[in-house]
């Protein structure tokens, strides 16, 4: 059983991860790059100048949030994350700042990435060597996509096993749509997919709500499909609705750096890409699960 679950998930995840990388190159990635231009620009915003001044001289040490965003220090609660990354996210007190100065994703950040990661593991901004060749970012994105896809495939295939009914490629697509609903569609209602430079609440709170929503939606769907009795149906429906009653953390102010049309296009592109990914992952998982069945 171990071999069947892990072999299925590894093959399906590898193929789906590579496939979605190619699709992202024409759907979401161009919009991310485009949005980053607005994020990097906006020189008229006075709160950004800290970042712009430092764009050529950022080092790991120099990238304390004070250097990058002088207006934040009232909060003073920079966490390790903030010190490391120039996005200058701070805890609760950063809300106002976040609203005022969206993540300083400037060209300087990519440069700083190079400094901090040494190996060059970073998404390079415009004008860096990696973005000129175009090999670096795609490679890292492909790696992240494959690992994420294998992770999702492991959970999906484990659910095949737990459900205890035969799954072929065709049923696999249905499972994939359930995965899409739990992982992409339901969380998007509270936390729409963000382009770089979008306004958002504090990261940890959003990640927490996202996990709550994904787990509750997945559990709710499981109960609705596999426990066909009235009480379980009620519990399942309650699980689907609960995260949205709790409510996702929202930014205090609106007005990200990318034009609204780009942000809207990105939401659609991200969801469509995710739907294709999940349908593909489900089909691949079901197909290999079926093929690896003990004879």
């Amino acid at each position: 059983m171990y071999r069947r679950i892990f072999a299925t998930a590894l093959i399906a995840g590898l193929l789906a991860g590579l496939g979605i990388t190619a699709i992202q190159e024409v759907t979401t990635t161009p919009l991310i790059r485009y949005a980053e231009k607005f994020e990097n620009a906006a020189p008229e915003a006075p709160h950004r100048h800290g970042a712009l001044e430092n764009r050529f001289s950022l080092t790991r040490e120099a990238r304390g949030h004070d250097t990058l965003s002088p207006h934040v220090h009232a909060g003073g609660e920079a966490r390790a994350h903030d010190t490391l990354s120039p996005h200058a996210h701070v805890g609760g007190e950063a809300q106002a700042h976040e609203a005022a100065a969206p993540h300083l994703h400037a060209a300087g950040q990519a440069r700083a990435h190079g400094n901090s990661s040494g190996a060059g593991g970073g998404h390079p901004g415009p004008g860096t060597a990696e973005s000129e060749t175009g090999i670096g970012p795609i490679f890292y994105t492909a790696m992240a996509n494959v690992l994420t896809a294998i992770g999702f495939a492991l959970v999906l295939v484990a659910c095949f096993a737990l459900a205890g009914r035969p799954v072929s490629g065709r049923e696999g697509v249905l499972w994939g749509i359930a995965g899409f609903t739990a992982i992409s569609l339901a969380p998007a209602l509270g936390l729409p997919p963000e382009v770089p430079g979008a306004m958002a609440a504090e990261l940890g709170a959003r990640q927490g709500w996202w996990l709550l929503c994904a787990v509750a939606t997945g559990g709710g769907l499981w109960l609705l499909v596999f426990r066909r009795s009235t009480p379980w149906t009620i519990v399942g429906l309650a699980l689907l609705v609960m995260p949205h009653l709790v409510g996702a953390p929202q930014p205090q102010e609106l007005g990200g750096s990318a034009p609204p049309e780009i942000a809207a296009h990105f939401v659609a592109a991200s969801l469509v890409t995710a739907a294709v990914f999940w349908a593909g992952l489900g089909w691949l998982s079901g197909t290999f699960w079926n093929r690896l069945a003990p004879r």
Binding site: G122, T141, P193, E194
Partner: peptide, 19 residues
Amino acid sequence: DTIHNAAHDSRHSFAFPCH
């Protein structure tokens, strides 16, 4: 930081909360 940078585009595309 390193993982975030490497997985940046992937995170945005999957609509994981990023930044």
